[in-house]
Nucleic acid binder design. Structure first.
Lengths: 149, 149, 149, 149
DNA sequence: TTTT
DNA sequence: TTTT
C-alpha cells in the first residue's frame, strides 16, 4: 500500500489553526495548483486541494504562510466521512502533509512571524519548539550579484 | 505548480466504464489504501480514494481489473464542484490517473479479458488499440523454480 | 526543498544486510523497474535502481524479500562520493527508503521468514521488534459492508 | 512498475544544452536539494541530483534557468552504463524530467530570455514553439471571487 | 553486477 | 564538479 502526494501551489486564503482538546495543534489550508493546460476557452484552471498539518508543522504553517504564499507539501491522501447537518453523509478528501516547504523568497516573508498563533493559554510553555522552519529548507538569500537576472 | 500522486491499493468494487458523447472512454474506480498504522482500538484503517482514467487506459482498466485487484496508479488530484440535487454545492476530489499498473500475479487474472466492455456500437472499429496493458508493465511469470519461497 | 521518489519493481538479487559499528542494521538491494516503452528493437528495458533501508525496515527487507520479489518503496534520492581504489572520485546515487512494501501475494511468501538475518550476537535481545511487516500491508479483505459507498 | 520522482531544489550551475544528430534538444542540469536535517557537526547537507530534459522543455530550461534558480521537476529515475576511458564500466543515474517548473518570483527573472540557445542553424524554423513556459506556472493571482470556497 |  |  502506497499513498503519496507531492504538491506545489499557492494558499487560497490565510491558513487556520486550532487545537484539539488535548492541545495538539492542527492547521488547515487550501493549495491552488494550476493545471498545466488551459480549458477549451483558454482560461487558466486550477485544482483547490484541502490540506491539513499537525503539531509543530501546524504552528509553523500558521505563523509563516499567508494567502498567496507559494508552498510545497509532501503527504498522503486521507478520506473520511461524517453526517452533515442535513442528515446526509458527507465525504471528505484532504492531504495530510508530513512536511511543508515555504517556497517564497525571503523578501516576501513578513519580518516578524505572525505572533497571534500560539499554543493555548493554559500552556505556560510553548508546546513545540519555535525553531525556524526554513532551516535546511528553502533558505533563500538571493542577492542580485549571485543571479544573472 | 506540481500536483503528483502515487497510489498502490485494492479496488473496492469492479470498475465502471462509460463513454462521453464524443465516444471517449472514461473509467472510474476506488482504491482502498491501508494506512500504515492502526487506529486506537487496533483496527485496520484505510483511505478510499476515487480515481478516474481515460481512453485506452479506461478500457484496459475496465477489462482487466476487478474488485480486490491490487493496482498502482500515478496521477494528479483534481477537484471540481457541481450543484447537488438538493441545490447544495457538492465538492468532489478524485485522482486522474495517467497510468494504471496491474500488480496481481498472472495466476490471479481472468483467462479472458472481460469482453463486455467495448467502444459503443456505432464504432465499427475499436477506438483504442487492444494491446496488452501488461506489456512492459507488471508482467509476472513467477515459476516456483525462480523464487525461493 | 522536496526530494521524493516512489518505485515499484523487482529485486534483481537477494538483498544484503550488514550492521554499522554501533549495531544499526542497513539493507541494500536493487530494484529493476521496467520502462513503460520498448527500445527501438522491441526489447524490454529497465532501470536498475540501488536502494538502501535502515533499522527495522532493513531486517524486514532482508527477511522477507528475495531476488524477483515485487516491492514498492517510498524514499528520497541520496548522492554521495568517495575516493575509489584507483584514486578517482566515485559518485554514487541511491534511494534511501523510508518504507518498503512487499507486493507479492501471500501464496508466494515463504512460510517462515528467513531466520538467518538477526542482529549480531552480542545483542541478547532483538534490537527491533519482529512484527509482521505485512500487517496493514498488501493484503486486505474488503467486504461491501465495510465500505462507505 | 512505477518510477516517479519529484524534486524541488536549486541549480548548482547554469544548465547546458546540446542537440542530438537528428536535432533534438537535450538539456542537463544538477539540482541541489538540501536535506531536512543537519549532519552531526551542524552542517547543511544536500543531495546533488543530475537531471535531463528533452525537446521544448530542454530549450525552456536552458533559456530561463540559471545557477541558483529554484526549480521543481517531475520525472523518473534512469540508469545507464558505458565503458569509461580507462576501460572500467561506469554506472550513471539521472532523473529524466517530464516537466520543469520555474519557482522563482517574477522579479528574479531576466527580462529577456537568453537568446543564445536556439535550434541549430540548418533549421530555418524554430523546432519547438517558443511559448512562455511560465504560463500556467508559478504565478497566479487568486481573487476571492474565483474560488469556490 | 541485473528483475519478470 | 556543487545551490541557497
Amino acid at each position: 500500500m502506497i499513498n503519496r502526494t507531492v504538491l506545489v501551489g499557492r494558499l487560497t486564503k490565510d491558513p487556520t489553526i486550532s487545537y484539539t482538546q488535548s492541545g495538539i495543534a492542527v492547521c488547515r489550508f487550501t493549495l491552488a495548483c494550476n493545471r498545466p493546460f488551459k480549458s477549451g476557452d483558454g482560461e487558466q484552471q486550477a485544482d483547490f486541494i484541502n490540506c491539513v498539518t499537525w503539531r509543530k508543522q501546524a504552528e509553523n504553517t500558521a505563523n509563516f504562510l499567508r494567502k498567496g504564499s507559494l508552498a510545497g507539501i509532501e503527504g498522503r491522501i486521507q478520506t473520511s466521512s461524517f453526517d452533515g447537518q442535513d442528515g446526509k453523509r458527507v465525504f471528505m478528501t484532504e492531504v495530510v502533509a508530513d512536511s511543508v516547504q515555504f517556497l517564497e523568497p525571503k523578501s516576501n516573508r513578513s519580518e516578524q512571524p505572525n505572533g497571534s498563533y500560539q499554543a493555548p493559554q493554559q500552556q505556560s510553555q510553548p508546546q513545540y519548539s519555535q525553531q525556524d522552519p526554513f532551516d535546511g529548507g528553502a533558505q533563500i538569500e538571493v542577492s542580485d550579484d549571485d543571479l544573472p537576472f
